[in-house]
Structure formats: C-alpha cells, structure tokens
C-alpha cells in the first residue's frame, strides 16, 4: 500500500515540527515521521528557559507537545513510533517504507533527524547502560533518590541536568575535562552555588566497573595524569551529540564532523531533498536555530513542490 503526500518530514523535533506548521498552513499534504514521540531532544529536557514567547520556564515535554499540537491543528499528520525500514530519496518521487509493511511517497522530503547523545566509548559503558549509566535525567533521575551520583560533561545540558538531578540525589559530582564550564553563565552560577553539587575539574572518565551493576568510575586528571576510582551509585552522561545521518549517508555529502552541508535554503544537491536542524553543518544548535531551519526548509520545499506539480501537469 502506498500513500501519497506533498511533503514528508522525517523527525518530529523543533525543526521538523516548525517545517510541518509552515507546510500544513501552505496546504501541502504533510506527513511527519518519528521513531519516538514528538519533540526530539526537547522532550527529555527538564526545562527550557531561552525559547522566546515563554517568560517563565517551560518543561521540555510541554513545549514538545505544543509544537506537535500546533502542527496537527493545521492538518499535518504525525506518525509516532514508526521505524523506517527502507527508503529512496534519489529520484523525483521519494519513497519511504514504514515498519516493513507500508510505503509513503512525496516529491519532497525534509530530513530533520537531529542528533543522538554521544557515547563516551570507554570500557564498561555498554555493559552498564541502564544498569547505572543513563543519558536522560528526566527519565531516570527518580531511580537515584538519596544516592550519590556523577555527571560527565560541562556544557549546558550537563549543568542544567545536574541541577535537575539534585531534586533526587543526595549528591551530584560533575566530572569535566576543562577547568571551567561551557554552559551559560546563569546556569553555571546556579550550579556552583548549589550545596549538593561538587565539581572535579580537568578530569575525564576512563572506565566503569562493578559487580552486577555499576559501582565505580575511574577518572584521570588530564593535567597530572593521576587516575582515581570513585564509588558511584549512577552516572549520567551529557557530552554532546552525534548527528543522525543514517537516512542521507551516501546520498549527500557529510562534513568531517559528520554533519550535512546544505545551501542557505536548506536544500541539498539532490532535488527535492532538504535537511534542517541539528543534523546540519552550522555553528550553533539551539531550539531557536532548529525552528529557523525548519521554517526555511518548508518554504523552500513548498516552492519546489508547486513547481514539481506544475511540471507534471504541463
């Protein structure tokens, strides 16, 4: 069974849903696909403080739902928890197979698959994933009520989520590879004044160990080369993201960090294929910049689809 759309958007994060709002309002038959629920990284962010229009902090999960509700109000269809089992973006008609059982097609596709949390890639990490190592504070924070935990990283996510984790944990120790945080100044100040938070600077994790579950974390001071074993009840890892480019690998060029290069209008060298949001090569990755990318991609795709329809009619 094949269902036809004017535009298919892969990824229901801020970029994909902003694109869906614009496309649906332009009366394009718009389908949004996501392997999870809507919201991308926003949905597991405990609070968002820098998205314009919300003078008070908003929960990431609420902002994610609002994006989706708005897109659906204008007629976009959002399919959640689907798996793309085959796809072909090279021709004038782009096809996507869903869950090995149905096919959808459209003349234009926007890939807004974003990025996934980066793994540390050190011994013990895969063994203790879900047995003491976590990448989502909102999901797993409550497992660590009254516990002594560690957070790896020093950017916005690491420091923000450490603050959130102090609601549950008895102590939160942040391990950071530099001697200062990369997080926003406001967040940094709050963390450094929180009595439950301690920081170990200039240090990187080297291994996870334990019997059955995670019990200890080995760190190395990058300046003195001294290694230390720390007893831990749990470790949260927030060391950035890697782009999710599985769908476009081999179809478009990736830069040396694995991100997709696009033109200013989010187009790629493949006609009808657009890329928006964190997956794109750019300097800053914020909710606001993802939304901007999605908007531009939808407007450019709209123009392309109208032309494609006119060509077929002619």
């Amino acid at each position: 069974m094949t269902t036809k759309y004017d535009l298919i958007i892969v990824g229901a994060g801020p970029a994909g849903l902003a694109a869906a709002i614009y496309a649906a309002r332009a009366r394009l038959r718009t389908l949004v696909l996501d392997e999870s629920v809507a919201g991308g990284q926003v949905k597991t962010t405990h609070k968002v403080s820098n998205y314009p229009g919300f003078p008070e902090d908003i929960k990431g999960t609420d902002l994610a739902k609002a994006f989706a509700t708005q897109a659906e109000r204008f007629g976009a269809t959002i399919r959640r928890a689907i798996e793309i089992t085959a796809h072909d973006f090279s021709g004038p008609v782009k096809t996507i197979e869903l869950d090995e059982e149905e096919t959808v097609e459209a003349p234009a596709v926007i890939v807004a698959t974003g990025a996934r949390p980066r793994d540390l890639g050190i011994p013990g990490e895969s063994k203790y994933k879900g047995r003491g190592i976590s990448y989502c504070a909102t999901c797993d924070g409550a497992y660590f009520e009254g516990k002594d935990i560690h957070v790896i990283g020093g950017g916005n996510s690491a420091v923000e989520e450490s603050l959130f984790l102090t609601r549950f944990a008895r102590s939160v120790t942040i391990i950071h590879q530099f001697d200062h945080f990369q997080a926003e100044a406001a967040t940094t100040e709050e963390a450094l004044h929180n009595p439950k938070i301690e920081v170990i600077w200039d240090s990187e994790p080297r291994a996870f160990t334990g019997e059955g579950g995670l019990q200890a974390l080995t760190i190395e001071n990058v300046k003195t080369r001294k290694t230390t074993d720390l007893k831990t009840d749990g470790v949260f890892v927030f060391i950035g993201y890697v782009p999710r480019t599985d769908l476009v690998k081999g179809v478009v060029a990736l830069n040396k960090w694995g991100y997709v290069e696009t033109a200013e209008d989010m187009s790629t060298p493949v006609p009808g294929l657009y890329v928006a949001g964190d997956i794109r090569a750019k300097s800053f990755r914020q909710i606001t910049t993802a939304v901007a990318d999605g908007t531009i991609a939808a407007l450019a795709a709209q123009k392309y689809v109208k032309q494609a329809v006119a060509n077929v009619a002619a």
């Binding site: 392997e35 999870s36 629920v37 919201g39 949905k43 597991t44 999960t61 994610a64 959640r80 928890a81 798996e83 869950d99 989502c136 909102t138 999901c139 797993d140 409550a142």
Partner: peptide
Amino acid sequence: FSTECPPCEALAPKFEA
C-alpha cells in the same frame, strides 16, 4: 516503565505491536 518518560511512551506502541 516510568511516568514522565518520553522514551517509554515511544516504546509502548512498538512493544504492543
């Protein structure tokens, strides 16, 4: 599963299927 866990919400329909 837990509440306030979007990955759990995402898993539910796959698990049921």
